[in-house]
Design a binder for these strands. Structure first.
Lengths: 222, 222
DNA sequence: TAGATTGTTAATCGATTAACAATC
DNA sequence: TAGATTGTTAATCGATTAACAATC
């Protein structure tokens, strides 16, 4: 009964296809084949078609896909055609940078507020946004129907702040603290853990003796 | 012959286990079983043991693992026991935040320089680091033996800057621009694409009609 | 010794890829 | 029509999980 309908990999690849289509559309290209999408996104053509097939039939046999049309369909699937109000919690280095970043709206995410508990920061402006006290969050969440929060608080505060934000009804969290948060199953959590990215990268650096070594020293039987 | 020795998933989970062990060690716990590591990291105990088994035997049957010892072994596997000199390219909002962030060194990564092409920014200080012109990069890379670069440049410049950095001998790149870069196979690339995280999250938001829908409308045969 | 827990093998599960009939 | 390319089924591949002998 608990059958995973769509592999998560398919969803993240959809985002890649969206990027490809955006570039092609900007170039004025009108048609595209799964082969071409795949080569841009770094996956096989059959993977592209399979991923799309989870959601419907968007192409025409022999003809390929219409660039603008497919792009719109993928936006609909991801739910990013309309702007989503999004908040940032924590106005430190990273939170401030995110609040000032203007590029999210091109993808359907509008930063509508930023919060901090440090009263020394509250009241300061980041671009056009004023840093608000965390207590002001509940009213804003319900008024603006905020579903997504970016968590850029210190790791020691992350779990506590996450609990608070979830209690206000936020349904999706991107956590930037290098800690493993626990959240209810109906809340979606994604971790953007830069330390982990770096550690993973480090593993694959040339010279790592653990890389490529046979798993269990295939011994000649003695 | 081209057999993937270690699944990438195992490497990223190793980072999670490292976090768990760091917490346990801080608490003063000396022994730990795969069961406990797994429950903290959100994976099965057999997954933990399997992941570790790619690299050696680190536990004692009946006894579990020594917390400090296993932590050290994982650090060695990932290659994060020593500090790695790391550079930031692009001193915009995000790059500046990363350069000021002091938390990386706890994970083995020391930001040693930050670069920008904008001469208006060059010369300014971010914490103790002065923003340098991109032309100064080659000497620094060879002198400091930099292997890792964080790329926080506009998407239009990302590929070009990546090519340049790679030409100087950098072997690992974390790209923050929402574009798909192409790099030689001996260079390791990881993408931290916040727009993609948000899009993926958005897909799983309640109310998405494409979520959980049967793949191909199981029709009663007519 | 009896109980616990590892390391590893074998079974299961799920995702990717290849192949091909459908059809533009 | 012949050529192209989809959507989908079946085959392959790889990763996760269960099971268990080894052993502390």
């Amino acid at each position: 009964m608990k059958k995973r309908q769509v592999p998560e990999g398919a969803v993240t690849r959809l985002c890649d296809y969206l990027r490809v289509l955006t570039v092609l559309e900007r170039r004025g290209q009108e048609k595209v084949a799964s082969e071409e999408i795949g080569s841009w996104a770094g996956v096989k053509a059959s993977q592209v078609r399979k991923d799309l097939s989870y959601f419907g039939e968007f192409g025409r046999r022999g003809m390929g896909y219409e660039v603008a049309g497919l792009r719109g369909h993928i936006q609909d699937i991801l739910g990013v055609r309309r702007q989503r109000p999004t908040i940032v919690i924590g106005a430190g280095n990273l939170g401030s940078a995110l609040a000032r970043y203007t590029g999210f709206s091109a993808h359907g995410f509008q930063i509508v507020a930023i919060y901090d508990t440090d009263l020394g920061r509250v009241g300061q402006y980041l671009g056009s946004l004023m840093i608000e006290p965390l207590q002001a969050l509940p009213t804003a969440v319900s008024r603006l129907k905020v579903e997504i929060a970016l968590l850029t608080v210190p790791e020691t505060a992350a779990q506590q702040v996450a609990d608070f934000v979830i209690a206000q009804g936020v349904k999706a969290i991107v956590n930037f603290a290098p800690v493993l948060l626990s959240v209810p199953s109906d809340v979606n959590l994604r971790n953007v853990d830069l330390a982990r990215e770096l550690e993973t990268l480090c593993f694959y650096l040339p010279g790592n003796e653990f890389l490529d070594l046979p798993p269990a020293a295939p011994d000649t039987e003695s």
